[in-house]
């Protein structure tokens, strides 16, 4: 299989389920909403050592947000149920409440459980917080702050989502790798329900789930490292490749992750210098979802 002359491996990305929440962050303008969203989803790449996997899912137009202002939708994922509650408390409290004009509303589909995170954060209001609603399906807390009023929904939901979808592809050099990678992440932003948790959506250090050191659970996957192709006998890296990119894709559903995978492949393949596209898996041992690249309808 080839797209624009780029071969697509007949393999699959192996994904697993995680607990997720989707939240809308609004602010007085789109730029500030995005800044707030980036901060709120910061330090949340991989559960290997960050407390959460989080990222921007979708950019909303003002008429699509609950308060008529520009907004950004973000998703948070954690391994444990309680992790969602803790992460929302910390991230919405420290990164949205503190961001001038920014407000947060829950937008999680198929909610399994809700947590009164907004109510707890509203205690920052020190008695000046006000509960409103339910209005338009939401109960809100309003609390005064220096920039005006912080509005946060009372409860935030948890749902089961899909994490670990990915593509790994081989490029000629840094320039071709980064340009195609950034474009691929942009394409995923247009897919509802999916997001890319890593820095700018790109992974520079693909890992394997083992290490020679007892304290580590994961280590660099030398078979994908271009500089090691000389000494690693079973390297995946083609000869003319000096840069390998991974885009990790999480989403609320397997379908969303597959959609995003497809969008990324189509975009990446438009770029010169992309040699071959593959995906990471552990032979089906780790996750319950298999996203086959040849079954994406490319």
């Amino acid at each position: 299989m080839e797209i624009n002359g780029v071969p697509i491996d007949d393999t699959f990305a192996e994904a697993f389920s995680m607990h997720m929440n989707r939240t809308i962050i609004t602010a007085y303008d789109e730029d500030w909403a995005r800044t707030t969203a980036l901060e709120t989803t910061g330090f949340a790449t991989s559960v290997i050592m960050t407390p959460s996997e989080a990222g921007i899912e979708y950019i909303l137009k003002p008429d699509e947000t609950p308060d008529g202002r520009p907004g950004v939708r973000v998703i948070f994922a954690t391994g444990s149920k309680d992790g969602i509650r803790e992460q929302l408390l910390a991230r919405l409290g420290q990164c949205v409440l503190t961001s001038p004009t920014a407000c947060a509303y829950d937008d999680t589909p198929d909610v399994a459980e809700t947590y009164p995170v907004g109510k707890m954060i509203a205690m920052f209001g020190d008695g000046h917080q006000v509960k409103k609603g339910p209005i338009d399906g939401r109960t809100l807390w309003l609390l005064p702050r220096m920039s005006g009023t912080f509005v946060i929904q009372e409860s935030f939901g948890r749902t089961k989502g899909v994490a670990g979808g990915n593509i790994i592809y081989f490029c000629k050099d840094v320039e071709s790798g980064m340009a195609s990678g950034k474009a691929g992440v942009k394409a995923i932003e247009k897919v509802e329900g999916a997001y890319t948790p890593f820095p700018g959506g790109l992974v520079g250090s693909g890992s394997k789930p083992s290490s020679r050191y007892k304290v580590l659970h994961a280590s660099t996957n030398e078979r994908y490292c271009p500089t090691m192709k000389g000494i690693v006998p079973d390297t995946f890296v083609p000869k003319d490749c000096d840069f390998v990119v991974e885009i990790v894709i999480n989403g609320l559903t397997e379908k969303a992750v597959a959609e995003a995978t497809k969008a990324a492949i189509l975009e990446v393949c438009k770029h010169p210098g992309v040699i071959r596209i593959s995906a990471g898996n552990f032979g089906g041992a780790l996750g319950k979802y298999k996203i086959h690249l040849h079954e994406l309808g490319l």
């Binding site: 409103k132 809100l140 005006g148």
Partner: peptide, 15 residues
């Protein structure tokens, strides 16, 4: 000042 939540109510009414 502009208010973060007035839009919420206005949008609700408008809908």
């Amino acid at each position: 000042s502009e208010r973060e939540f007035t839009g919420y109510y206005i949008r609700y009414l408008k809908s």
